[in-house]
Amino acid sequence: MASVSIDNPMTDAEQIGSKPPRLVPNYWPFVLPALLVVSAVIVFPWLFTLWMSLNSWTLGQPRTFIGFANYVRLVQDMRFWESLWHTTTYTALSVVLPLFFGTLAALVFDAKFPFRGFLRGVFVMPMMATPVAVALVWTMMFHPQLGVLNYLLSLVGIGPQEWIYNQSAVIPSLVIVETWQWTPLVMLIVLGGLAAVPREPYESAEIDGANAWQKFRYLTMPMIAPFLMIAVIIRSIDAIKSFDIIYAMTQGGPGTASETINIYLYNTAFAYYDIGYGSAMAVVFFLIIIALSFVLLMVRQRANWSDMEDR
């Protein structure tokens, strides 16, 4: 299959070259403008970043080609490794929690009850809200003295927390915001999966005397598994790149306690204007994301195969 897409343009190009008039409409003019724009704003930056990563260049100073030195520097950069660790914990939590709550919510919203449409509409709102605005309000809510969250905790007898102002609490606190904002997306994806689940197996399971848990475990779970996997993939890609919330709330602080790769990358390129080193970091970051996506896609493929064998 893969070869088809590669062959296609070739044969088309040949047809344009040689004369015989074509019956099948030529669709390339439709694609051309987008092709140009995508080349300019997406493909060109990729290539340029790759090239810049081989140079030493701080803005305002002369540029020199240094080969892979930036990459070597990256491997030895403790701050990078630390940010990688922050990214990992942040991403893992930001995948697992929305996945859990989102699936739960999808199961509820799949049933019928009064005001379902309205409640679902409200539930979806966080992911559409402007992240910076959301971050700002959360910052106020996290405030150790004046924040409403510590007040709420005091109502149930828990002492005040420092939230984003504490080195060890900052990442979990940010994850709360991320979870609040992105649980709806998981909910929508899983809800889409549930909508595609046929009714008959449930009826026959009912007749076979399965209880609610068994029905969930042996019918619902396997059928929505592919959608959960899609949610995991999308959530992973988004969480690992998360920028707005972290930057607006902590700028990577306190200290560097919440500095993820993306934040470190930003600081390198646009606070220190170390373009070459920043580009190298961008390339490595990009490769990490691609690798992660690839692994997740493989897992998904495998899951599909074992699915087939079962039947």
Partner: peptide, 15 residues
């Protein structure tokens, strides 16, 4: 493109 971090578009285009 969806997987690419926004910042890696920013550096070259900024320049």
């Amino acid at each position: 493109a969806r997987m690419t971090p926004g910042l890696s578009f920013l550096i070259p285009l900024f320049l």
